[in-house]
């Protein structure tokens, strides 16, 4: 069963990759990369159970989840503001 799931996940990673290659807009590629990250996380977790050593792989999957999100948000921020916030005006200080 686990082997089947890993196979299907590899296949869907391929589907997401096709979307990333075909585009057409840059947002489609970001979307594909995001979906790809989710599938990789689940694939790594399942793979850990498949080879019978899930502990290590779960830590990696967790880190992928956190880092992939940071990457996606950074990309979106650039696509919206043109940079990572260097040239935006300072926010007013928060009242205490």
């Amino acid at each position: 069963m686990l082997i089947l799931v890993v196979t299907v996940l590899l296949g869907t990673m391929g589907l997401a990759l096709i979307r990333a290659v075909r585009g057409p807009t840059v947002y489609d590629r970001i979307l594909a990369a995001n979906a790809f990250t989710t599938k990789t996380i689940v694939m790594v977790t399942t793979f850990g159970f498949m080879v019978g050593e899930p502990g290590l792989y779960l830590d990696i999957a967790l880190m992928y989840a956190l880092i992939g999100f940071i990457g996606t948000v950074a990309v979106l921020k650039v696509s919206e503001f043109g940079n990572l916030g260097q040239t935006r005006p300072e926010l007013p200080p928060k009242p205490k």
Binding site: V8, L9, T12, L15, A16, A35
Partner: peptide, 9 residues
């Protein structure tokens, strides 16, 4: 997952 992948395409 498979349906989602097909949907993306």
């Amino acid at each position: 997952m498979l349906v989602g992948g097909i949907g993306i395409l």
